[in-house]
Amino acid sequence: MSEFIAKAENIKMFFHSDNEKTQVIHDVSLKIPSGKITMLVGPSGCGKTTLISILTGMLKPSSGEVFYKDKKISSLSENDKAILRRKEFGLVFQQYNLIETLTAAENVAIPLLADGMDFNNAIRHAVRVLQTLDLGNRADFMPSTLSGGEQQRVAVARGLVHNPNLVVCDEPTAALDAKNGKNIIALLSKIAKEKHKSVLIVTHDNRIFEYADLIIHMDDGRIEKEENKPGTQIEK
């Protein structure tokens, strides 16, 4: 099994607006190690979000290649990219992006439903995952009746329900207080360790850096440095 679940090679990204061409990613190469927690950190506007959009196949880079398990993402059709995300990636968003008219369990079940599982089975699976996140008693609640921390845990459950190999979290603690933020990261860390899942977290919250196996620092569209957690061996 490869040491790296995903990698990016020589990624450049330009945005065009009103005859202006702005480079937001400058020749970035990086590797996401398998079974580890990787944090992509840096100030707002440094290109973190653009980079994870490229890594998950939602944005096409101006140049360079992205590989997921040695599969070239740019060679996939939009449909295949969506299927890849559905089967291999678990996404957790900063704003949760839960559907307000669905219960917590129904929200969690979406990746399974999209993959063709029947509704009752998908709900059963979703409730089981919610129980592991101590939200079993909130399965039938609508998102608007849940606290911010609970909503983020529902979003995490949605990112995990289909047993993805790479969990990608965008600022998962940004909307949470310190305690809830730490709880979420501790939970992701536990999953990465116990189930040997890879987790990529985009954050600028230095309170959670202690959970990272690898921290990739970005600034102005470039990778400034990579730091391994003491005692963590990551092959270059």
Binding site: N79, A82, R85, F89, A114
Partner: peptide, 16 residues
Amino acid sequence: IKQFAALKAIGVTNNQ
């Protein structure tokens, strides 16, 4: 629209 975008991000295809 944000929810549809989230669905697409999660892996729901355009056909779905």
